[in-house]
Design a protein around this nucleic acid. Structure first.
Lengths: 137, 137
DNA sequence: AGCAATATATACTAAAATAATATACATTAA
DNA sequence: TTAATGTATATTATTTTAGTATATATTGCT
């Protein structure tokens, strides 16, 4: 039912990079996000692939955001780790279900609507929005 | 990320009982919903506990809906099986997170909003709504 | 040049959650 | 009073998620 821990970790990691706004190596990120070094590395690679984070190899390497925080949404980060949000598996074409015909199933319609609602909400929140809402306290 | 198969099965089972609108035994429900007999029995017990379905023991026993379909929402059925919908585990008080202070975390705010959106949508759809939308085809 | 610090890639293992099944028991209509 | 049903609990299997390990490639620094 929940998003995965990995997705939550990915958000923490991006959050660290937003706060630091300078190059950090994986060890520092791991410490700041409270995520094991190995798992952080795995997630960071995904974030690099999806263009959210930029990496530098070699000695004095590390990671920085590849874009401005205002250009990175919660949807971007979560989808990097677990693909597009879907409320139910029945939204997959291959899902076998007794509620036929599949294409016209009203439950499927509701679940699709919910998936869209969630995706839109996630897409509407950027990491600069979050940063600003923290400042106000 | 998804609701569980068990929740989807529970919806299928209630859907069968709505369509049949008469007493069905577990075997018939299992066949109609394409869910194994054992698993159907397990789910039916939960639906009885939560007051959605009524059971009759002994020979010629079986199950019927305990309420009118207009009184049963998708939220009722899904919550029977997997409890209240929560987008992220970080909404649990006990969840350990580096993004402190926990109570003021802006991510948590967004995830709470999403959970509420989803719950409200699920609560707004009854099984008679679904039935009617099928008739119109 | 070459070493140490770093990221990358892939494979592997462990733990947790989900899904499914089995066994024994209780109830009731006929 | 027995056969058909539901109830309760326990067990096993499968899948997904989470976490770790090993080997490799790249780069800055001396």
């Amino acid at each position: 039912m929940h998003i995965t821990l990995e997705a939550d970790y990915a958000i923490r990691i991006v959050n660290c990079l937003v706060d630091a706004s300078q190059r950090m190596d994986a060890q520092k990120i791991s410490d700041a996000a409270c995520v094991s070094l190995r798992f952080s590395l795995k997630i960071l690679r995904k974030l690099v692939s999806s263009g959210i984070v930029q990496s530098f190899k070699g000695a004095k390497g590390g990671y920085v955001l590849a874009k401005d925080p205002s250009e990175i949404t919660l949807k971007d980060v979560i989808e990097t780790v677990e693909g597009p949000y879907q409320f139910s598996r029945c939204l997959d074409e291959e899902y076998p279900c007794s509620r036929v015909p599949h294409g016209e199933c009203p439950y499927r319609g509701v679940f699709g609507d919910i998936s869209t609602l969630v995706q839109d909400k996630l897409a509407s929140v950027t990491f600069s929005d979050i940063k600003n809402s923290k400042k106000q306290k």
